[in-house]
Design a protein around this nucleic acid. Structure first.
Lengths: 376, 376
DNA sequence: CATATATGCTTAAACGTTTAAGCAAAATAA
DNA sequence: TTATTTTGCTTAAACGTTTAAGCATATATG
């Protein structure tokens, strides 16, 4: 029983029967909550229903050892009190953060943005969230990103390496911590981790084949850095495809580039300065291809009649510019999905039984105006 | 003392003096660590130095009540054992995750990607990490993103709303939880939260003024949804600027659009079907402007001589297409920085003393070929 | 000299959740 | 009937960190 006695206008005196002490304990906690306006916890639910916090936790997770009746009650109270589980606490206890780090060179490319979106969708199904970081093609930034992600206790990292990255120490660091590492697009064979990418070698073959069919005989290649696996594969594919079609490989037609717009302009100018100009240019990246296109347009060179142009990556702008640029579609959605799935496999399997996945997807050539000689 | 006795080839017998029991305890923990290969914790460091975990924690945080000698020792041991603080534990204890959620309609736009990058850089300085989520312009996805971020226990949310978003319940949910919410670009006055954006009204004035200067008399506007604040402001600016220059506002020249490429094409076609065609079109988004440009090019209409074209947002492709598109630069870097700073202010200040920031930045008109009549 | 203050630590509890272990009571099997 | 299993919970510890409170010891102050 609880007596109320307004003995003084500024005080309230409560007279509580001794056996109500336990109630008072609950009440005092409730009052505390009122003041600080704390978030409701499992304990609060437990107090309301007069069961243990453990039972509440199990009920919320549909443990088989909890009665349906209790489960229903718990869920109802949880809803009423607007209970939101504290992710940090459960992550700490379970030793899993349910966060996955993603590192990309940049997000403002359609390829990466689409990969990210698909990673996210796939992981979301299993209750994982992703933390996206951008390296801006900088090795230093990439290292900081890795540290940040490790600090945030991510359960895994999905990454595409910066152009600059040669030193793999930081990636070894991830591996040494036993955190699943999955690379996509820009990977490294030496690291010996899971990898998802397209068949760059075959893609180069497709491009050269297409250009040969269009009647081109002097096909130049503005490639990426040879030391980066994907660009090396594109170069090898280019060289082998030339051989296959009995075209000679000429040193002056094979140029290494960082594949920015600016460098695309420069390398294209370089090609135009040759005595014996090419009749086709295959650029290993769309942005550089755009730079090349600008130079060609500026110099009044007809595309594709004088020089045909092919890019790589199928960035949306390839379809927007004039003339539209033929390019390779990398199936970004599939790459993202596979990367996520590969991570999930690691997360589910025991630490011991691990095997490497190297997933190589076929790419697709999107023929546009810049190389469509016969119909132009 | 510790005696070693190889009595059996498969066993090792250790004879330990009784007073070494306490050492054994430490040793057994060490052995355990060896087997399970656990991460080193503050406790490990404490054990090595024979001090309390509390002292270690304080030493690592440069607490004034810890001697320099101890600090040095702790830091050295921490380095030796490759100690990485467990962020989850400290976040749980401190009630702060040091994570900030970011919601954008999409990341593959230069504007958003640049904003994000600057938010990240600014927050990184103060030890915050960001979790990026994309709404893909979908209200449903946006709601899920908010739930995800709240679940991850973010300390704040910086968001730009999806086009679809009209119902503000989910944003109210953030507010009601006392989590700082900062909107940028796409905001809502009704929400009454911090906002960082550009002066859309003035920007429209600048555009109209520029077109008038180029000699245009019938200026059309393909605008965004009227209900969205920024697009409404652009429309108001357009209308008022027309008045200011004594041009009549004609209903058929003011069109509402979702501002995608496709809709840009459609709305431009609609304008071209008019008996009395416009001599300039101001499109409230670059993508729709691109669609408009495609239609104009396809129909052989000269830009800017027949019809001048202006976009909004200064997406990189506006400089890439032919002719290049005049557009408004939104100072994405500054918006990102200010958004981050605004959050940090909230994070530092006490919950009680809060005041709203509405930061409106001036934008910049980048004149390109599509509206440069006099020099073309 | 006694008292006050500063220094350098320790102890113990807390953050909110999960989970191994355990214990009655109920249901089932022998 | 008794033994066994199942059901439905509780207790208590743990995850790794931080921090309020406390306690000596050393130093400063009057």
């Amino acid at each position: 029983m609880l007596k109320y006695n307004q003995s003084h206008k500024n005080y309230i005196i409560l007279i509580i029967k001794t056996n109500a002490v336990y109630l008072l304990k609950r009440l005092s906690k409730y009052i505390k909550n009122l003041n600080i306006k704390k978030k409701t916890t499992i304990k609060d639910i437990a107090n309301v229903l007069n069961i243990s916090p453990a039972a509440v936790s199990k009920a919320l997770h549909d443990d088989s050892r909890i009665s349906e009746k209790t489960k229903k009650a718990v869920k109802q109270v949880a809803k009423n009190l607007n209970y939101q589980p504290n992710h940090l606490a459960s992550a700490l206890r379970k030793g899993k953060s349910h966060l996955v780090g993603v590192i990309v060179p940049r997000t403002n490319s359609n390829f990466f943005s689409s990969v990210i979106q698909n990673i996210e969708e796939e992981l979301d199904k299993e209750g994982y969230n992703i933390i996206i970081t951008q390296s801006n093609e900088s090795y230093k930034k990439e290292c900081r990103n890795i540290d940040t992600l490790l600090f945030t206790q991510v359960d895994g990292i999905i990454a595409s390496m910066a152009n600059e990255t040669i030193n793999l120490d930081y990636y070894e660091k991830i591996k040494s911590k036993g955190i699943p590492l999955i690379l996509f697009d820009r990977g490294e064979n030496d690291l010996n981790v899971d990898y998802i990418g397209i068949n760059d070698y075959d893609s180069s073959h497709m491009i050269v084949e297409h250009l040969v069919q269009q009647g081109c005989k002097r096909i130049a290649h503005i490639g990426g850095y040879k030391r980066t696996r994907i660009f090396n594969n594109r170069i090898r594919g280019y060289i082998d495809a030339l051989k296959k079609h009995n075209l000679s490989l000429e040193d002056e037609l094979l140029i290494e580039s960082n594949l920015t717009i600016e460098d695309g302009r420069e390398k294209m100018s370089q090609l135009l300065a040759l005595k014996n100009k090419p009749d086709a240019v295959y650029v290993a990246g769309d942005y550089a291809a755009l730079g090349a296109l600008q130079i060609l347009n500026e110099q009044g060179i007809k595309i594709p009649e004088d020089i045909a142009l092919v890019g790589f990556g199928n960035e949306p702008f390839t379809a927007m510019v004039t003339p539209s640029i033929t390019s390779i579609n990398q199936h970004s959605a599939e790459i993202g999905k596979q990367a996520a799935k590969t991570f999930l496999e690691h997360a589910k399997k025991s630490v011991v039984k691990q095997q490497l996945n190297k997933i190589i997807l076929d790419a697709e050539l999107i023929v546009r105006d810049s190389s469509n000689i016969k119909n132009s």
